[in-house]
Nucleic acid binder design. Structure first.
Lengths: 239, 239
DNA sequence: GCGGGGACACTTGTATACTAGTATCCACTT
DNA sequence: AAGTGGATACTAGTATACAAGTGTCCCCGC
């Protein structure tokens, strides 16, 4: 069990009290989700509300708010009177997340290809260049952020800002898988290339091409599941 | 402002304390969402955590849990230190919900058409007959439940149980719209007919037909927006 | 009559106290 | 020695107390 949980930006804990102001729930949710996705909180690990609160400098109340959202995401499992645990990877949940993500993003990318303006395309290309730099540095953290941004751009280009939050929740499960893929650096150039193919199809207003390229790209992650399961059997559900 | 909020099944309040047991949050969430969808809690209406808790026989804590989820759904708006309000209808949010729903359900119905077995088709037909009976009685409440069940069947037939919860959250916004459509009884037979068309396409394993029929059906609700807005301008956002 | 200022009632956010259920572990019995 | 029962140290769910910010409304002064 991973013991030390240094919270990334410790702003929440350090900013002291900000009573009566905006809730710290969203921040705590994002921080904990990030730690779960990065497997700093390992699948199956027990989480203590009291301990998390102590570590993050808040009481159980906002911790519980964050854990509730993570429970809705199925990233943690709360067993009343027993404990809260980081959810083990469920192949079924991964498949569900893949289905949702594919449905949303592939629909979004079609719209994006139809009505993307030159500015949006330029932004995607800028992001792609940053991805290449991160790939050269083998900076997985930076690349992951850029990947999220890239897919968010696709979703936002659909003109429906509510799509990304839903997609992000599904993507978490797949991001966690990718994190565990030790040989991921090998795949980074491949993924950037796939991104570029999608972006080019969007830029040339080719919905069919964009959808096909994106679908193929999204499914690539899923193919890694058996290998990852072999490497980390204890991180998976025991059905 | 509608004042009396008699909770439908008062089980939560009547079952007395059940401390240390399962959380009442999910129940409260469903109950409040239902009241919002039915416009028993009117768009723009102020909600008091304390008052809701008193009315439902619980403290603010579980009420806040339910309101937090409703806030994620964008069905309520929480303004710190000011108040919590039933969200007014936002055409943008409705459009977003429509996009998400269309993407998910249309993808699901294709899979459903491909691998629906005879038992599933029989269940859908049974549901359709119940819809017809509810239509004859002009029992909108019963019909709404059957409508949810019908669309849930489609989602579940995709083999991905996580799809429906996501779809349900988007559907809430559209259900609320339909509730406000005073002339809805006129549309009930039309909708049942549309459902039947979808079900038949699923039964004959016709993905393209099923998707087309479902998409057309889903978009029907959206066309009502301008008329509803005319009838209830105060229920809409003031952009 | 009109305008301004302050008390006050109310809000959400947070911290803490309490309840009841669960698992573990150790002492005791057989 | 092995098995069983109970004390105990946890857990999450709930209720309540407190903090801090916001808007209203009334009273006072002009």
């Amino acid at each position: 069990m991973a013991e030390p949980i240094p919270i990334r930006g410790k702003d929440a804990a350090e900013s002291g009290r900000r009573p009566g102001r905006a809730s710290s729930g969203p921040y705590l949710y994002a921080a904990l989700r990030d730690q779960i996705v990065r497997a700093e909180l390992a699948p199956g690990e027990r989480l203590s509300e009291a301990e998390l609160g102590e570590r993050l400098g808040v009481s159980r109340t906002p911790i519980r708010e964050a854990l509730g959202r993570l429970r809705d995401d199925r990233l943690v499992e709360v067993r009343p009177q027993i404990g809260t645990f980081v959810a083990r990877i469920s192949p079924a949940a991964v498949s569900d997340a893949q289905f949702i993500r594919e449905a949303l993003e592939c629909t979004a990318v079609r719209v994006a290809a139809e009505l993307a303006d030159s500015e949006s395309v330029a932004q995607m290309e800028e992001n792609l260049r940053a991805q290449e730099r991160a790939t050269d540095r083998i900076d997985i953290d930076a690349w992951q952020l850029l990947d999220d941004t890239f897919h968010r751009q696709i979703c936002d280009l659909s003109g429906h800002p509510a799509v990304w939050p839903v997609n992000e929740r599904a993507k978490s499960h797949l991001n966690r898988l990718r994190r565990l893929s030790l040989s991921m650096p090998d795949y980074l150039p491949t993924m950037v290339e796939a991104h570029r193919t999608v972006a080019e199809a969007v830029g040339t207003h080719d919905p069919d091409g964009a959808e096909a390229a994106l679908r193929e790209h999204l499914r690539a992650v899923l193919r890694e599941v058996p290998r990852i399961r072999e490497q980390h059997p204890d991180y998976f559900e025991e059905p």
